[in-house]
């Protein structure tokens, strides 16, 4: 379960990488990110699906450790982390209900990974081995076999030099993948603290 939660949060955290940080993998200087906001469209591809499942939502991050990861459709859910304490809410009958369990306590561990990336230390992660390829592509492969059984690799594609990541693709198997495509990214704008406290 810990591996599962690690994957979920890695996917979330990867969306916050700025090109400047990604360039750090290639040996250039990183730029400190204080906050990031972005919209995303998520495509879920599975061999059994005739068409991908499309989800839409928003990411908001505030350094050092506050996160709001919200899916607006098809299921309205909000994952909040403030001061390292993760909570997940699902909307049912026009009200948000907090969901317990599913290893929520383990999520705090992953926060270190995300904040490490935000400091520009992608290559230093204890969980993944990073490799820079042509065309602004970074490939992360799990170091631990337990995690590799759940996720085979993650591909990060940079959106030029001035925005967030263009996309993050998380491969679970040869034909099973989740792709997050980011848009409307905003860096280092002030975010109200309440954003991270309630759904």
């Amino acid at each position: 379960m810990r591996s599962l939660i690690v994957v979920l949060f890695l996917a979330a955290g990867l969306g916050f990488l700025s090109p400047a940080q990604a360039q750090d993998v290639a040996g250039q200087s990183p730029v400190r990110v204080d906050s990031v906001q972005a919209e995303f469209t998520q495509e879920k591809h599975l061999p059994i699906l005739v068409r991908p499942i499309i989800s839409k939502g928003t990411f908001v991050f505030q350094a050092p450790a506050s996160l709001r990861w919200e899916y607006l459709s098809p299921v309205h859910s909000v994952l909040l982390m403030d001061d390292g304490r993760p909570r997940k809410f699902i909307e049912r009958n026009d009200q948000f209900v907090e969901e317990q369990g599913m290893g929520m306590d383990s999520m705090a561990i992953v926060l270190q990974e995300i904040t490490g990336w935000l400091d520009g230390h992608i290559s230093d992660t204890p969980t993944f081995k990073a490799k820079v390829q042509e065309g602004g592509l970074i490939v992360l492969t799990p170091k631990e076999a337990a995690l590799a059984r759940i996720i085979s690799r993650i591909e990060l594609r940079l959106a030029g030099r001035s925005g967030l990541m263009e996309s993050v693709t998380l491969y679970e198997g040869p034909d099973s993948l989740t792709r997050l495509i980011f848009s409307h990214g905003v860096l280092n704008e002030k975010i109200p603290p309440a954003t991270f406290m309630k759904p």
Partner: peptide
């Protein structure tokens, strides 16, 4: 207790295929 997931069900006459995944897309 409980949780919310996304379920995929495929019926093709001969086979029944099902998958459960998190809202975030990870297949459980």
């Amino acid at each position: 207790g409980g949780a919310t997931v996304i379920g995929v069900t495929v019926l093709d006459g001969q086979k029944l295929h099902c998958a459960l995944m998190t809202v975030e897309g990870l297949v459980l």
